[in-house]
């Protein structure tokens, strides 16, 4: 990032942590309409594919094929499909989800924005399949102070798995 980057004050760190923990509660409950209220209008939500390369020999092709590369409009479609019972079979019954957030660190960049990193552990259980699905990874976020409080302006999710061992990604991280 160009421009200034300053460490977080204690109150800022508390505020950012609370934001992420409250957000994780919404994501665990799959309350996506409420989560949508925490996103800025220019939100970008990105989840690239994880690949194994020999050390120092990464080879990428094309423009990339992320699992998610969403703006406000495409997120609105996904949220609508996942939130209304008659519009989803993947999430009806809903998954039972626990999303834990940890390792929160960040910097203040510019006047109103923060770059924030965190790690997550998702546990997801589907009906009729008792085996929980566990997925760990990390996130790089931009949070922005707005008139209605902190909001998420950008998130990039990095997964540990290169082969998704879940039949779908019908949830947000």
């Amino acid at each position: 990032m160009n421009g200034s980057s300053t460490p977080l004050s204690e109150p800022e760190y508390r505020q950012i942590s609370d934001f992420l923990f409250d957000e994780a509660d919404l994501l665990s409950a799959m309350d996506y309409p409420a989560w949508q209220q925490l996103l800025t209008d220019d939100i970008r939500y990105l989840m690239p594919v994880t690949q194994f390369f020999e050390v120092g020999k990464a080879r990428h092709i094309g423009v990339g094929t992320p699992y998610f590369d969403e703006d406000a409009d495409s997120l609105a479609v996904r949220i609508k499909l996942l939130s209304e019972a008659h519009l989803t079979s993947a999430e009806n019954p809903r998954s039972s989800i626990s999303l834990m957030i940890s390792n929160v660190r960040g910097n203040k960049i510019g006047i109103r924005e923060y770059e924030v990193k965190s790690r997550f552990l998702l546990t997801r259980v589907r009906p009729a399949i008792p085996e929980p699905y566990n997925l760990a990874g990390r996130r790089e976020d931009i949070l922005r102070t707005t008139d209605s409080g902190l909001k998420l302006a950008r998130r990039t999710v990095f997964l540990t798995q290169s082969i998704i061992k879940s039949p779908n990604l019908s949830f947000f991280l």
Binding site: V49, T65, I163, I164, P167
Partner: peptide, 13 residues
Amino acid sequence: VEVLGAPHRWEMG
């Protein structure tokens, strides 16, 4: 055509 990038890989039961 050309591919846009790496394939997505999944497992299903």
